[in-house]
Design a protein around this nucleic acid. Structure first.
Length: 343
DNA sequence: TTAGATGATTGCCG
DNA sequence: CGGCAATCATCTAA
């Protein structure tokens, strides 16, 4: 009966019940002041429970006494064993997961984009070079290039500072928990193995947070890339001189406006654009000219005259007869190109 | 703000 | 693979 009362009083601190609800306070006090704990486990438990009822100094003294008790290590290991067999064994199984393939994928991508790799790495330079090669005149290209690099550097900086913050928070928290558990292991059955396991759990939690960071960084990089590498979004009209050169070629080869590979290269060099841009231009030009020859008539005449004048000036023979109003009179190919008229 | 111009892309064909 | 046709996305002049 007395034992029961002791146990009940011990529970008071934990359950929040009032002393009046569980029994005679003075009787309990008397038990506490009995001095050295008895050798049976029930007494030790009782004392552990009773700690909550005592003042801090008293509690510390009692805690120390408990720690020094010769039964303590045995009891501790038994309780740890019991705990291990029940809760932790269940948890232990699901904790053993292999390295996440998702996070490896994200890591690889960030490395490839030059975000997580070494500063100013080759990867980012390569990506920027690809951006420059993707389109636009060299001038615009270099502007986009530096803009792209700046944005990428910004993303990289945010990524690294966030990562550092997470790592710091993780290690701080881990230390805190470890200290707490070590401290509590003096009064609770917490084995080093369990502490280790807890650290593992914390690390997993933080790495899942890190994965979110990596994921959002990847997204940001993808958006950046799509914005800068999709040339359609950053289309620049060719400069006047380039258009002039291309038109000259087109109208002076109206009967067969299909420049050879060499001619394309030549034109590309003259216009400071890529060969594929030349191809695009001719493809667009042919289709649009064909669709509406009338609309291009004036332009055709203009370039016919232009070419004629150029040729005439080379032969140092004035061609006064030619004027925009009287086109196709210089012996140059008339705008006779038709869809079927491809020679 | 908007219509037309224009460079790029995509899908298909021979 | 080169070219055509349709279409997209952006630029530009009015």
């Amino acid at each position: 009966m007395e034992d029961q009362a002791r146990m009940m009083s011990g529970l008071v601190g934990l359950s929040g019940l009032s002393q009046a609800d569980v029994g005679d306070h003075d009787a309990v006090r008397k038990q506490h002041s009995l001095g050295q704990p008895q050798q049976d486990i029930g007494d030790i438990l009782q004392q552990i429970m009773a700690i909550t009822d005592e003042s801090l100094d008293e509690a510390q003294a009692r805690k120390h006494a408990l720690n020094c008790h010769r039964m303590k290590p045995a009891l501790f290991s038994v309780l740890c064993e019991i705990k291990e067999k029940t809760v932790l064994s269940i948890r232990g199984i699901q904790d053993e997961d292999p390295p996440d393939p998702q996070i490896m994928r994200l890591d690889n991508m960030l490395l490839a984009e030059g975000v997580s790799g070494p500063e100013k790495g080759g990867a980012s330079a390569a990506a920027a070079a690809a951006a420059a090669a993707a389109g636009g005149s060299p001038n615009d290209g270099s502007i986009e290039h530096s803009d792209y690099r700046a944005k990428l550097a910004q993303i990289r900086q945010i990524y690294h500072s966030e990562l550092e913050k997470y790592e710091q928070a993780c290690s701080e928290f881990t230390n805190h928990v470890m200290n707490l558990l070590r401290e509590q292991s003096r009064t609770r059955p917490i084995s080093p193995k369990e502490i280790e396991r807890m650290v593992g759990i914390i690390h997993r939690k933080f790495s899942s947070i890190q994965m979110q960071l990596k994921q959002s960084t990847c997204e940001a990089v993808m958006i950046l890339r799509s914005r800068f590498l999709d040339a359609r979004r950053k289309r620049r009209n060719f400069n006047k001189q380039a258009t002039e050169v291309l038109n000259e070629y087109f109208y002076s080869h109206l009967s067969n406006p299909y420049p050879s590979e060499e001619a394309k290269e030549e034109l590309a060099k003259k216009c400071a654009i890529t060969v594929s841009q030349v191809s695009n231009w001719f493809g667009n030009k042919r289709i649009r000219y064909k669709k509406n020859i009338g609309k291009f008539q004036e332009e055709a005449n203009l370039y016919a005259v232009k070419t004629a004048v150029d040729a005439a000036s080379v032969s140092s023979q004035a061609s006064q007869a030619n004027s925009p109003a009287t086109p196709n009179s210089g012996g140059y190919p008339a705008p006779c190109y038709t869809p079927d008229g491809r020679l």
